[in-house]
Design a protein around this nucleic acid. Structure first.
Lengths: 158, 158
DNA sequence: CCTTGAACTCAAGTTAACTTCAACTTGAAT
DNA sequence: ATTCAAGTTGAAGTTAACTTGAGTTCAAGG
């Protein structure tokens, strides 16, 4: 039990779906670890696959690598996460997703209410109001708008 | 009726909530236009405010500047958009928002179904599956995952 | 031994959407 | 006439999350 306990990077690429360059990058950022072969090539433990799955899931939820790193480090040191670890985390992520959904729905509602008025006059359209206008009258109709956590996709990604 | 028909950049900054640098940038990208004073300073027509409101709203919906530029150019040349223009556009935006909401909800559902299994085993967890796995079995449970249009916020903003 | 495909490193490039900076110039008010 | 806030330009910087490229080395099969 030696040869099959570690996997070369190509294998990890296959099984995880991440590019080799991404794996090296994650390693450089301290998200994953690797041992080295005699000649200096990376040899991964099987557990890195679970870690990578976690990374992908978290990233789908919209966490930054920084945040993901934090969560990974909070996962009681490298043992397999228990069901309660997983439950705690999923609650957190659920919250994130809910926030995002609510924000989008608020936006949609604003949009709908604008169809009637044909406005975009910048006068009192909640949909197009810049942040400070909205902030000024606290209980405004379309108050809030997009939270910081809802901005455009990153172009690099697949 | 001359002095009050054009506005200096500072005024536009106040009224639109965009930074002066953003306004110059938008101009360089052809999203807005400006006349010049004798000495070369920008003088904006009032209508630019409506355009800027449109830009902000579209950007809140998640359109790229490129897309916004397209939509602006499709708005029957610079006249005030009619109610039907606005209706057509808002339908488009609504579609975008709906897509995004659906994607997030699919993700949330996947997350929920994962709580029970405590998985992230990379074996068959729809939530953490990389794209190609999902693509391979077409009618998979959590199929689809995040569309390209749903990736992280851009840090620069506000 | 030789050949090749797989891997390595490190620096630099990519993308969007702006911002910052340095070094002036304008223009409205006193 | 002076002043100074407000405006101008063009180039370079910022951020996240990686990718690309150049030049070199590893490792496994024949």
């Amino acid at each position: 039990m030696d040869k099959h306990d570690v996997l070369p990077i190509g294998e990890i690429v296959q099984r995880s779906g991440f590019a080799a360059s991404a794996l090296r990058f994650y390693e450089s950022e301290g998200l994953i670890e690797a041992m080295r072969s005699g000649g200096g090539q990376r040899r991964y433990q099987r557990s890195v696959l679970r870690r990578l799955a976690f990374i992908r899931a978290a990233s789908n939820v919209g966490l930054t690598l920084e945040e993901i790193k934090d969560e990974l480090s909070r996962l009681p040191s490298n043992r397999t996460p228990t069901k309660s670890d997983w439950h705690r985390i999923s609650q957190h992520w659920r919250g994130r997703l809910d926030e995002q959904i609510v924000a989008l729905e608020r936006l949609k509602t604003g949009l709908e209410s604008c169809i009637g008025c044909g406005c975009l006059s910048l006068q009192r359209c909640a949909f197009s109001n810049p942040g400070d206008w909205v902030a000024s009258s606290d209980s405004a109709p379309g108050a809030g708008l997009l939270p910081d956590s809802l901005r455009k996709p990153h172009p690099t990604r697949r």
